[in-house]
Design a protein around this nucleic acid. Sequence first.
DNA 1: TCCAAATTAGGAATGATTATTGATTGGGCG
DNA 2: CGCCCAATCAATAATCATTCCTAATTTGGA
Lengths: 144, 144
Amino acid sequence: MTNTALEQDIREKLRRSGYTLTSQRRAVLDALKETQGHPSAEDVYLIVKKKNPRVALGTVYQALSVLEEIGVVESKHWSESPTRYDLNTEPHLDIRCVNCGRVSEVPGVGLGDLEALVQENTAYKVTSTRLVLEGICPVCQGEG
Amino acid sequence: MTNTALEQDIREKLRRSGYTLTSQRRAVLDALKETQGHPSAEDVYLIVKKKNPRVALGTVYQALSVLEEIGVVESKHWSESPTRYDLNTEPHLDIRCVNCGRVSEVPGVGLGDLEALVQENTAYKVTSTRLVLEGICPVCQGEG
DNA sequence: TCCAAATTAGGAATGATTATTGATTGGGCG
DNA sequence: CGCCCAATCAATAATCATTCCTAATTTGGA
């Protein structure tokens, strides 16, 4: 498995920023891989806790923050929902159901050159471009 | 001035949803007009309080929520920042400085048919599309 | 005017996140 | 191999934004 290669890559990124790959940070990464979704910090905490009951929620927050800083994890903020975390840092679109909270990826649509376009039209130095979508998921539509 | 006409329009929208235009709600609208920016609920509260010291912060939150529901106000969520409110409900792009918190509008860039494109590529019923931009504003760049 | 329903003020409660602090750990160096 | 120092962690207190609750007030309509 590519587990070790990925881990080496992450370890290298951490090192470059003066961090180390601790067992807690690895556990957070594993939890993110495991869910394949967009868990909240609390969700990650619960998964990590299953294997190591001694971890603290604060540690999960701190690990997620470090992992985001080195570009391995991305966070998104929806309304009426805690921050959600994602291993996929490629530009992509996520949509959240305002009814049940489910988060799904929207395939086949890219932000295109929107980021470049934005950069041309503002004096800001753009550091982050995130499209936040909300809607009603198929399941909840069926219930209507 | 068109004040009365605008007010009539809003009064009508409220009425259609079973609400009334109370002095507190009008005060919140005035505060939003006054700032022309993207104030937080707290900012709005402080402005409203100047004219009517008896208003409660909770009332401001409730008023903003009602005004958003009827489509007169839009809220946006950036990281590390309370929700910010805007009278401009036309599709537009706002960028927030991660250093000083300033929020500015990005002119000349639209979301185009992105919303339609998203709708085509997901089984969700899209209810909200918001592009959240973050960067470093010109002033803060100068300080670097 | 009077009533019922909507709204408000004030403050307590909640939920997410950050800060603090003392203990623990792990990797480099003797 | 074992010590040392800085990084990290666990536990919990504190903070911040927001919502909830309740009694009092206001409002529009009969």
